[in-house]
Design a protein around this nucleic acid. Structure first.
Lengths: 194, 194, 194, 194
DNA sequence: AATGAATGAGGATTCATTCAT
DNA sequence: GATGAATGAATCCTCATTCAT
């Protein structure tokens, strides 16, 4: 049942289905057919649009990173103080959208993908750099002396809380994650002003 | 030529080979034949000993956890103060043995495995609990008020630093990892005594 | 924008594209999409006009045979003696048009097609019969006693030189092919008059 | 049902099955499964032994060329005069073994394969060179002046008679093929002595 | 008429697992 | 015990064909 102008919708559906299936399986062990079925299209179409399974995965990863980036940018728009900026970043990481069990699980798989695919590694590094920039910018504005260390610690905390969440699946506790990191940040800032 | 008493050696070789191959591949996408070849035995023998590929993976994971646990216990034996205990735990995580790129990469894969296999999940939870016990025990001795939060933060930091290391592969920086966590711990302890 | 009277042009373009693609690939392993693309139309249209891939192939084969037959007839029109007629036939086979690498390669593929499709086999047999008629007619006029044998030998030589040319691809040597066959014909005619 | 020492038999069976299936289909459009089934093994085993479908085809082609070469060598052993040698070569080409419909049909497919695979092209060229050497050697011994032309004509005749036979399938007429070529050879030798 | 999106059957290839030796 | 030959299910991918627009 071919229709015109469906491409963006199909691509989008396939990307969502990919994230969903990877999240569900908890790994990259999902077949193109599963993804296609979930998206309500044939496996042939998935190849038609993306060329290969790898490209489907990369498109899904790009999508997650794009959405993530947008959410962070949006949150930063509302931040008025450097401290607000830090909060904005941290809260974005654990927003309802980004901290969904499926998405968290997909993230874990993308870390694995980054070990196999150079393109995936590149994407992940871009994300890391952007996160780092955002953190450093805010920390510098707060005159935190060892800004890079604090930024690295925050970034590691985010990843660590994600990976641990992946094991839980159901009972996502974004609140607590934010609170743990915020506590660390407060300490770090206090420490320096003391 | 089959020999008696070979079984433990064979099993051990297969387990080591499994970790090595998973580490090398950066994922669970390794074949039994690859593992067997690396261990210098036939693929049939791998099945003979472990029954299935899943069981081989689980045995490898158990091995990593056992070695890890042993190293922590060993370090704790030498610790005299609660603060030493914290340091012992943290340093163990980033010891030359445990923080080898291959092992770090295998760890990531085991987190993935835990999403697919209940037994793997169980093993990982046991590790989490043990780590938590050890941390809590030391933190309580130091009368840290919000001990559980600090313990969770340390645990997340460890996992986060592992997962980020997995992306780097070569340039392992255990030193910096320990230093970041130690800095956090110092702050956390100071904060409470202030 | 569909136009009236486009069909013959489209069909022709598709037939040419088919020969070209088969020649390029050196086998029937060409897709309808490749052919359609080369012809500047959609794959759907190719089916619309020809019904199926097989029919496209057969149309291409028919075209080659038609062009070939026309060229032979044209050459025969100019021949005045029986000997001229033989030369006309032989030269037609190795004319610039018919002995193009692509066409030679396509011929080989049509021999293969004839093993799979009865219709293709029928077409090739018609060609064989016509070539044989033409040869026999000229040979009889020359009172060659074992005319059928000579005709078969000439025909085999033509096919043999084609198939060998297919391996060369580039350096087509029509001159030499004609010369080899002509030498044979001279001998055959001499032998009988001696 | 694994057995030791089966490899040569399996390989051989697969090669034979490949020739048989290609001959039956009249083209390279045969599946590995068809070949494997005909050989009485699984498709997996075919890949285990040959690595890929291409390699299976090449092995089949090599086999045909090896058998062909052996038969020619055998016939040449019995030839005492240069003239005998020519006869030996020609008769070998149309022996019961080499001129089997299936084998003839497979030959045609190998000419096609040679257009796609460099290795196949190489093999075919080796065969061409060897045939040419043998012919030239005999013709020189007979002091035929234009030996290379005669050799090329004989070679083209052989290929031409093969390709035409491929169309017939059933009613193989090796006798007549040999007789046509022999007639040509007689003429060519006579012509020079006249 | 013309397009090309969409389907789904088919095929090469891989690999866990079995089992005769 | 140990091997690795053998199987066959599973999966990615291609492509002829259809059909809504």
């Amino acid at each position: 049942m071919p229709k015109v102008g469906m491409e963006p919708m199909r691509r989008s559906a396939l990307v969502e289905a990919t994230i969903s299936e990877i999240g569900r399986a908890g790994s990259l062990d999902v077949t193109v057919s599963q993804i296609a079925k979930k998206a309500g299209v044939s496996s042939g179409l998935a190849h038609h649009y993306f060329g290969s399974k790898d490209q489907i995965f990369l498109a899904a990863m790009r999508h997650i990173l794009v959405v993530f980036g947008a959410e962070v940018r949006g949150a930063l728009l509302m931040a008025e103080t450097p401290s607000d900026r830090l909060q904005a970043i941290i809260r974005s990481c654990f927003s309802a959208q980004n901290f969904r069990p499926e998405v968290v699980s997909a993230w874990l798989s993308f870390y694995v993908l980054a070990q196999q695919s150079d393109e995936a590694k590149r994407l992940l590094r871009i994300y890391h750099k952007r996160l780092n920039s955002n953190l450093i910018y805010a920390l510098n504005a707060l005159s935190v002396p060892n800004g890079q260390e604090v930024a690295d610690t925050i970034a590691a905390l985010i990843d660590g809380l994600y990976i641990r969440q992946a094991l839980q699946r159901d009972e996502a506790d974004a609140q607590r994650a934010v609170s743990l990191i915020s506590a660390y940040v407060s300490q770090a800032l206090e420490g320096q002003t003391r």
